[in-house]
Write a protein that binds this DNA or RNA. Structure first.
Lengths: 214, 214
DNA sequence: TTTATTGGACGGACTGGTCAGTCATAATTT
DNA sequence: AAATTATGACTGACCAGTCCGTCCAATAAA
């Protein structure tokens, strides 16, 4: 029985998988899940179609692997940026900055994440929300610290985080819909200015009273 | 030669179309464009498949018609709410409130709008952005007035609007992903508080300086 | 009023094309 | 030469859109 050393083996397999995932990301991003066809992915990866299915049991698993790889690297990047500073407000700045910078560098992923929601509502519940709430827990700690240090107003932290994450997702999404022309990271300063200080003039603040009638 | 009066005819056709669109919205929302099959839509509409295609040339046109109907009624609803008040800040409140309230009432549409982006990148450019920017122009006027009345800080209005619309889209989207449990309109007050006043405590404002490093 | 005629609305079986996934064979590695 | 890895033609399922037969309601004829 011939056998490569387990180690060498694993590296080879990982390389092949990476090669396939890279092709898959490109095609899925352009075509969406249903429209993408596996022949195209194989062609793009310069492999036979059979090979694709040797490494990923089926199209769905291939797609989900691409999503997971993306979400994990997003998480890693945010964490490593946030750790660079200690002040809670600075950490929030880092979250916003690294989130936008990540998607600027990984534009193709945006399409894929949208498609995931579109094609696998079920999976969302488990996988995406896990990723998402994994991050949210970490973010929550940062806000709690900001609150205890008296930096931010007394507000429901969960609601504030919903607004921030919704805001980030929305901006990234719209940027991509509009064609991703200008730099996404240009928007960091406006986002932070509004999120931290709001749009209302200081002189006016308090005079006008926000009362909502839906 | 027999012929119903043109008028009666038109009403009949409109009813039929509405019946089909309602079924289509349900199925497309649940399944997405590619996954939805026209047999199911026909069944849901209690019509034969042939009939569906008598009223809508093909699946794509049926889908787009559903999107258009939705976007138009969203636009109508926002405009009618905004017209009820004259103060620019109150108008902004109305935009936020009616936007969320619309999607709370038309939850199925959220899925469909996501799918549109997912399935018809090309069409987005024309149809959706038309709708979108049609609204944006109207919103821009409101912000300009707020600015000229000295209510809001001197900021790039386009950027502010990007943030607001991104924020709204993002919140609606996330709400739906999470299952649309609690009332979406509950979030109006936090959104406005943050958008108008920011999260930072007044005492702290200005001391801490926002400086972004991406 | 009753019966015949007819145009067009409707249904759903059918078709032609597409594509995920398989498998028998070929190539390559050990 | 044995074992492992790669390949791409093939197949069976699926589904948008068609097409022809049925049915009904409105008019005309009796």
């Amino acid at each position: 029985m011939k056998m490569k050393s387990d180690n060498k083996m694993k590296i080879l397999i990982e390389n092949r998988k990476k090669q396939i995932l890279d092709a898959a990301v490109t095609v899925f991003s352009k075509e969406g899940f249903s429209n993408a066809n596996t022949d195209d992915i194989a062609k793009k990866a310069k492999l036979g179609k059979g090979t694709i299915f040797r490494y990923f049991k089926n199209k769905k698993i291939l797609f989900c692997s691409a999503v997971d790889r993306g979400l994990n690297s997003l998480k890693d990047e945010i964490i490593s940026e946030v750790e660079k500073v200690s002040d809670p407000l600075k950490k929030i700045e880092k979250i916003v900055g690294s989130y936008l910078s990540f998607f600027e560098k990984n534009k193709k992923l945006i399409g894929i994440l949208v498609h995931e929601q579109s094609s696998f509502q079920k999976r969302i519940a488990s996988q995406y929300l896990n990723h998402y709430y994994g991050n949210v827990d970490r973010i929550k700690l940062i806000f709690k610290k900001a609150l205890s240090q008296g930096l931010i107003k007394k507000m429901d932290i969960n609601e504030v985080i919903t607004v921030l994450t919704g805001l980030l997702n929305g901006i990234v999404y719209m940027w991509q819909v509009e064609g991703g022309k200008d730099k996404l990271t240009n928007k960091v300063s406006v986002i932070l200015e509004i999120f931290f200080n709001g749009i209302i003039k200081n002189e006016v603040r308090g005079k006008k009273h926000v009362r909502v009638s839906v």
